[in-house]
Design a protein around this nucleic acid. Structure first.
Lengths: 343, 343
DNA sequence: ATGAAAGCGCTAACAG
DNA sequence: CTGTTAGCGCTTTCAT
């Protein structure tokens, strides 16, 4: 015998107690409208009396779903945990899921082997949907998900033509706003430190920079490649880029860095070079990590609505799961320029 | 009919293909020794050919288990995410679970309502075990878990008499080592900034301090309450405590802070007061957040083996789940003094 | 060692 | 609207 009748009441016992059939109980539980008020009341009473809680596994088996979604964290990014970004994303997801009985599975993928394993999970339909963060351009997972027709939402996108649903921050707009701010404040030679060009997010921020300088009135001379230096989203990269810029255009009086960490590096170099920040050279960074904010609380930056991104990702995913159709959604959330310096 | 025969091969199909009964396939999958090599080989071949993956829900239903554990994060701590501590804990758990087919559920609990909901989860045996972090002394969850006979492991403990299994850092030893270090370096008036006395971790670190000063040779005068100031694990708390100490014992030449954040606060006050750190006053903090490390990379501190704690928690939990018996395990992991200043 | 059979608790199709 | 009836895919006796 198997039947460790776990002690826990079953749907059948509820039905008995309520004096109805199992089907009716099931309907009540699942909020079907095709139930009389009388029956519904009886069932609800029975449920309360018995302290009945549906068995998830049975439900999943019979209903061919799992009521669970996975949040996938690729390895190089497990460090990501240590950042407010991640904290906020998770908090947002949690908030959105709170009123659902959807479970959140945390899946760390650090090796190709683990990725293969996760692919199996997916194939076995062990989750109803997937949330992906920090997806790289060459990540095979999104395509696999699509092929499997598994609902999925990315945070960020791989390119302009992203086919999978995604929720992203308005990187172009944020960068544009940052640079426009600098220009509006009277800065005439505004440079930018970019991220790796093979990352969409880096290209977007560069686009924003370009739009702002090109549309600026007055004699800024439009887009000047000498004012663009490539960084790699690290502090050291920011340092190198800033040194280059200083050599190429010593008269720089404003810098937009595509990440706050790079901004911190740039600031250090500027000060070493005897430039006052922000008086001589105003600096704005795109706030990814907020670690840099600890380093310099006075750094003006472009803030992302991270928690809202998490919430939105979850909401979009739930919608995608609900409607069986595979409609892709693309959401871009606004960023906000937070001025922390006095210039 | 229900049978959206999902396309996925079932155990039965494997059995057919392998020319054996379903029971045999099940035994092979679960690594039962009571299977002939021949049958085993046949089954494994069939599994590979068909790309069979067991259905988790069916398994859970039949086996009365879930192959999932929950990591519970109480609300006030969701900020915790933003710290390396959390990152490391999760990485450790992930590493330990990687070779298992145990899933990790992330459960955020921010309201009493959500706690009640989670209690239902537990009662409904929706997970095989629970991992709890940052448990407060008055947290009702551990007792509930115990009452439900649900395997559980805490990170840290509520008191000396903790009944639930836990994995903790050696707070007493770490504090003792820190203070002994200070004394060995010639510091004669070593003060301490403590955490809230209703937190076990704070009391432990104070105990370590006391042990070190009491066992110190030479004229340190033993434990002096005037050298103990209460903080609250915040930077501002550290500041206040440091100011008090400076008033009570202006001659202080060493400080052990029960957290690195408080150490950062103390350092700021010391410098304002014209004391050189670490030359005039050497400072050691207990490394909880590492945010402070960013503020002052040169701060000597007591480091905790956080990732190992996560790994250990998971391992202990898996063991507890495996053996049905409810044996409690208490693991205390060593800390390490990392000297980052030159004094 | 292994096949057969009996569920695990629930959902959904079906017939009223 | 509601009771009945088939399974969902697997584990676990129970014989053999």
């Amino acid at each position: 015998m198997n039947g460790r009748h776990s002690g826990r009441p079953t749907l059948e016992e509820v039905a008995l107690r309520a004096g109805v059939g199992r089907g009716t109980v099931s309907r009540v539980i699942n909020g079907s409208p095709r139930v009389s008020d009388r029956a519904k009341a009886a069932v609800e009473a029975a449920i309360a009396e018995l302290g009945y809680v549906p068995n998830r596994a049975a439900r999943a088996l019979a209903g061919n779903r799992t009521d669970a979604i996975a949040l996938v964290i690729p390895e190089p990014e497990t460090r990501l945990f240590a950042e407010p970004y991640f904290s906020d994303i998770i908090r947002g997801i949690g908030a959105e899921l709170a009123d659902t009985d959807m479970q959140l599975l945390l899946t760390l993928i650090r090796t190709p082997k683990e990725r293969a394993r996760f692919a199996q999970y997916l194939a076995a339909h062990r989750v109803d949907g997937v949330l992906l963060v920090s997806v790289h351009e060459d990540d095979p997972l999104p395509d696999l998900l699509e092929q499997l027709e598994m609902p999925a939402v990315l945070n960020g996108r791989r390119s302009d033509l992203e086919s999978v649903s995604y929720v992203d921050a308005d990187n172009v707009g944020g960068a544009r706003a940052a640079v426009a701010h600098l220009i509006a404040r009277g800065r005439r030679q505004v440079a930018t430190i970019t991220g790796p060009p093979d990352m969409y997010v880096a290209r977007s921020r560069l686009d924003g920079y370009r739009q702002a300088v090109e549309s600026a009135a007055g004699g800024l001379g439009g887009f000047d490649t000498a004012l663009v230096a490539r960084g790699d989203f690290t502090e050291e990269g920011g340092r190198r880029a800033m040194r280059e810029l200083l050599v190429r255009r010593p008269g720089i009086d404003g810098v937009f860095a595509a990440s706050d960490v790079m901004a911190a590096g740039a600031r250090a170099v500027l000060r070493e070079a005897g430039r006052r920040v922000p008086e001589d050279v105003a600096l704005v960074g795109f706030e990814d990590s907020a670690i840099a904010r600890h380093m310099d609380p006075a750094l003006t930056s472009v803030r992302q609505p991270t928690e809202e991104m998490g919430r939105t990702m979850a909401r979009v995913l739930l919608e995608e799961i609900a409607e069986r159709a595979s409609v892709r959604r693309h959401v871009v959330l606004a960023t906000e320029l937070v001025q922390r310096d006095s210039v």
